Simulated scan of single mutants.
Amino acid sequence: MSASKKFAAVTGAGSGIGRATAIALAAAGFTVALIGRREEPLLETRETISVAGGEAHVSGADVTNESSVESAFSRIAERFGRLDVLFNNAGRNAGAVPLDDYTLDFWNDVVATNLTGVFLCARAAWRLMKQQTPQGGRIINNGSISAHSPRPNTIAYTATKHAVTGITRSLALDGRPYNIACSQIDIGNAATPLTERMTLGVLQADGSMAPEARIDVTHVANAIVQMASLPLEANVLNMTIMATAMPFVGRG
């Protein structure tokens, strides 16, 4: 195996930011493991990468399930022999739900995907990066601008994204002895099917409904490739990439 060969894993690689990032990483020379629950979208991502001359492999997993995650990363270790980058991307949107309408099941589902899933995948990647030779690697967590400022009626989503920041900082600290870097990218309004509703109008902090600007998802993917391509002696701890005109900085 070539010492210059780089290997990456992307969770939630079947659509949206995950798919765009997997494609961009492959174009940058990474061999990519595509992780997700549904095989068909992952195969579509792999086909797009293959047509462009890149290399990708499907490694299905439910990020909320411990044994499923462990199996996926065991397959990565067997196939690649090492892992240089994990883009810890899989998550779910929770919509706007008033607190008194929350059910415990809804809360637990959001936490399982957006927080426990991030932990399980980070732990699996960490174990592989720690034991491989040469030691080390990079974990990039997908946060959100909701890790800094909430949207109305999004307590579960906001809580999990704040917690992802805690995971990122803890791993960045704990990874020092093992040459493991950890980063977080906070994304505001990437143009994917999940944000299509924003073009029609979404709830604002003042109670009004207003459309919001979005950015092409390839800009996000390219930013992640830039983070992933740094030598391990350098780290972008936090990056915010967002639509310039979205209502995040300032008040309404």
Rank of each mutant, 00 (worst) to 15 (best):
A205H: 12
V236M: 12
A245Q: 12
G12P: 10
N108Y: 12
A223N: 05
F80Q: 02
S74K: 15
L42W: 13
P152I: 03
P247H: 12
W107S: 09
S170T: 15
G175A: 02
E70P: 05
L203V: 04
L86Q: 05
N142D: 04
E212T: 09
F30W: 04
A245K: 12
A28Q: 10
G91V: 01
A210N: 13
F87P: 00
P231M: 06
D109A: 15
R82V: 10
F80H: 02
I224R: 02
I215D: 01
S74H: 13
V32A: 10
F87V: 10
A213L: 08
P134M: 07
P231D: 11
T192A: 12
A22M: 11
I23Y: 08
Y102R: 07
F248V: 06
L128W: 05
I215E: 09
D105A: 15
V111T: 10
A147S: 15
A172T: 01
I17N: 01
A122R: 05
V97G: 03
T165K: 11
S68Q: 06
L83G: 01
T21C: 10
N179T: 02
N238F: 07
M239Q: 10
I17R: 01
L99Q: 08
A221D: 05
A22S: 15
D186T: 04
P98W: 04
T168I: 02
V164P: 00
V249N: 05
V63P: 02
G18E: 03
A77D: 12
T21L: 12
T199A: 15
G53Y: 13
V118Y: 04
G29V: 06
L230A: 08
T154S: 10
N108R: 15
A156G: 11
L83N: 01
N93F: 13
A234W: 03
A205G: 08
A172M: 06
T192D: 11
I155T: 07
V236P: 00
R37I: 13
A205I: 14
A27N: 06
A77T: 10
A112H: 07
I17E: 02
I155E: 04
T218P: 03
D84L: 03
R19I: 01
A163M: 08
G54Q: 04
Q135Y: 05
H57K: 12
T48P: 13
A94K: 02
K130D: 07
I17G: 00
T168Q: 11
S67A: 14
L173N: 11
T160L: 12
P177A: 04
T154P: 00
I187S: 04
E40Q: 15
A90E: 06
F248A: 00
Y157P: 01
S208I: 01
